[in-house]
Design a protein around this nucleic acid. Sequence first.
DNA 1: GCTCAACTAAACCAATCCGTTTAGATTCTC
DNA 2: GAGAATCTAAACGGATTGGTTTAGTTGAGC
Lengths: 207, 207
Amino acid sequence: MDETHSSIKKGRKYAQVIEGARTVFLRDGFEGASVDDIAREAKVSKATLYSYVPDKRVLFLEVAGLEATRQADAFTERMDENQPPHVLLPSAGRKILDFLLSDFGTAVYRIAVAESLRFPEVAQRFYESGPGLVQKRLSQYLATATARGELVIEDIELAAEQFAELCKVRLVPMRIFQMVHDIDEAQKQEIVDSAVAMFLARYGTSR
Amino acid sequence: MDETHSSIKKGRKYAQVIEGARTVFLRDGFEGASVDDIAREAKVSKATLYSYVPDKRVLFLEVAGLEATRQADAFTERMDENQPPHVLLPSAGRKILDFLLSDFGTAVYRIAVAESLRFPEVAQRFYESGPGLVQKRLSQYLATATARGELVIEDIELAAEQFAELCKVRLVPMRIFQMVHDIDEAQKQEIVDSAVAMFLARYGTSR
DNA sequence: GCTCAACTAAACCAATCCGTTTAGATTCTC
DNA sequence: GAGAATCTAAACGGATTGGTTTAGTTGAGC
């Protein structure tokens, strides 16, 4: 593997630094995180940290970039395109919702939103390899299902975005705005089911 | 009007201070805003500012609270409950979308998300008097329309949230994540129309 | 014209933070 | 085990910030 990837990494504790930065940035955001905290968390001296990375801003971009691709990889797990919508959509919806409600998912979203003014490129990259990727894979499935005659959709990309959006109803805002009246498993299922019902009422065939 | 409202306001330049704080907080967020900036923006000395407000945090809470109620008032404009869904929903959807896409709406949302960890009570208040209020008024309408037999809805509140969520599709994330490929009027109409179409496909009666 | 409350500008304090430097310890390679 | 590369702890400089204090100004009411 070619390691000239980024041209700013040299020594052997690079991974430690990134991991520590990840932890602290996700916990405290960009402004809230201090470089001393990060160095402490990474069990590394500040001097070595600064031997890897020219400044805090670049460190953040590095971490955010890695997170984006990690997020992308997580969603690259294939879904079985042969299954009919009323079978596939519930499980896909659950996967989306579970991610958005996870500690990690909310932290990432929070930072992307908070830092989108300071770092527009970070926000965009997150969008493209987060929601964007989901929408892309979903569109792909919807296209084949439509070709099979199981769905009738004029604007496939729009339909995919609508479905993803429907999965966020109620629970995602509640989570983000810290109104965590115990996150119920049954509630999650209810939301996803209602998203599927709505989607099929609009784009389903027979039924 | 009783002016013992909050017990921390005294002098005559209180409004100036709040207005300056509003400007700077909305522009720079909580951490990004410096008290000196706010004082300068308000054309007030830092000493007077601190004679009104004990610290920066409380100032932020004060501003955020006022913004929340302002937001609430804006949506309290009555909508004509006698109109049928296919007439009322598009205009309601447009109102929601226009707010979310406005400079003010995005700034408020950004701050609420970014500061929801530091100030859970702010985030909650925003939710309740922002999305929460919209959902409440929408629910009210959906209930009467259902009573008139124009809609068939089991869970009214859920339906209201679904509609609001559908209005956010595509454009709201694009706006928040700074991918502002010119915000087209036609696009907005397209999103709202598709939201209405989906909603009526699920909950509409004969048509 | 005096008083008193609100205001101002500016200096100031203590804390924090980013980033650098120094002086030395550890580890890797040969 | 010598020497080079990498690391460490700690201190430091310079800048910013939240909040206080001081010394002085403005202006309305009497």
